[in-house]
Amino acid sequence: MSADRVTGADPADLYAVLKGFEGRPAAVAGVGKDPVNEPMIRHWCEAMGDTGAAYRGPGAIAPPTMLQAWTMGGLSGHTGRSQAYDELLALLDGAGYTSVVATDCEQEYERDLRPGDRITFDAVIESVSARKTTTLGTGYFVTTRTDVRAQGEPAGTHRFRILKYAPAARRGGDDRAKRPRPVVNRDNAGFWDGVAEHKLLIQRCAGCGTLRFPWLPGCGRCGAQEWDPVEVSGAGTVFSYVVMHRPVFPAFDPPYAVALIELAEGVRMVGNVVGVPYGEVRIGMPVRAEFVRVDGEWELPVFRPADGGRGGRG
């Protein structure tokens, strides 16, 4: 049942179908397109800047980290890839998860590989994750384990994890997504009306005089439903903050700091901190409210360090 929640927009049974591939072969009786050979070793070492003596001259071995390279299909495609693995990738492609990126590689080396060694391999689909949202996009992690042999002898194992994902929308340019708009209702309309006029309004209970924010229909202290709007000065201090890195939502450009501001009047308000690098925001930093125009359509209160960002530190 948790699978339904995790897979979200996907058909409820997709995750179950994907899980069904666990334990099935990913490659059967695969054969390396080239035997281990000196030119490929040399090209690898040149690219990596690896001048290791073990990889040169008579008695040279291949760099062990080349293990996967000997099994690669190259431009002409994979040999020995199983029907099950192709089906799994096709299912993910069909569901919109068309891109792929590798995330983990775990290799164990049991035997040196030397020029002339003929490579064969078998692979199994070890696991398929629940749907995950990453910086690149949303998708599924697929883990395979490949057992590699040289001249028929065990040479090493290679565990590989990929993310099959649906690319997140590109950022920047004219197609830039708009920010989510505030939800305005009869309980908070007064606040947003104030913001539109560059006024920061909070409520004062007509019964007991308690100031409150965010806007609510009744007083949390005495329960009275009558209130008056009060304009605050906009001065306050950073009570707490976070720096937002991920996930990356369209229209936002992380990293950026979001703070809980304690206003001089005593209520607290959440807002972005601007005009100072996100890494220099500090608890206790004095700030002042200002207003930014968003998407050319509406106003949003933000907070800027009152003294150029030098306060509250040390």
Binding site: M48, G49, D50, A54, P63, T65, Q68, E106, D112
Partner: peptide, 21 residues
Amino acid sequence: NGLVGRYVTDHFGPAARLRAV
């Protein structure tokens, strides 16, 4: 993966052999 392997074998010298990465 190759760069990580090189980094370690560069340090430990020609007799070193990678066992797992």
